[in-house]
């Protein structure tokens, strides 16, 4: 279920079947040109990526709106992020997966109420290219398997 009217009204009708939450964590900043380019690209990539996962398991997953934050400020974000997650785990949601390409979450993951899944991403490239597409397909099928192992 995506965060849109149609899906969410479906979710409200069928709450008992949906117990998994996905939040994409997306950093951005304006300090360095190169970094901006990479972050913009990785934002697109991650969005595509979580959409694919959502498509696969639509009936059991809610994909929350992206969580944006200034890059490099991961430690300051954990409290706010936990608020987000808490709000939904009360519904209840049993499994919370936070997807990111930002390696800084690795260290901070112990303070976060949920599974932080760090993905080694591509730096740049063409999202329409077959290379990127097969990269996404490959990772999605593995992540899907991982999510299934939690259920």
């Amino acid at each position: 279920m995506k965060w849109n009217q149609h899906d969410i009204s479906q979710y409200v009708e069928a709450k008992e079947y949906i117990d998994t939450l996905i939040v994409p964590l997306i950093p951005f900043g304006a300090k360095k040109d190169e970094q901006m380019k990479t972050q913009a690209f990785q934002k697109e990539l991650l969005t595509m990526f979580v959409n694919e996962i959502e498509k696969e398991y639509k009936g059991r997953i809610v994909l929350l709106p992206e969580y944006y934050y200034l890059s490099g400020k991961v430690n300051e974000e954990t409290a706010r992020l936990n608020h987000w997650v808490e709000e939904f785990t009360e519904l209840p949601f049993e499994h919370v997966f936070l997807f990111t390409f930002d390696v800084n979450w690795r260290k901070a993951s112990k303070d976060v109420d949920g599974e932080v899944i760090w993905l080694p991403g591509l730096q740049s490239g063409n999202l329409q290219s077959s290379e990127a597409q097969s990269f996404i397909k490959e990772q999605v099928s593995q992540i899907a398997e991982m999510i299934r192992s939690y259920w």
Binding site: A14, I18, K55, Y57, K58, G59, R60, R148
Partner: peptide, 26 residues
Amino acid sequence: ICTHLGCTVDWNSQEQFPDEFYCPCH
């Protein structure tokens, strides 16, 4: 597309249900 809530079904993916389409969600 599963007619329940829209997950993607798999063919023959569960050992206990051979030769059936199986929805991993529910």
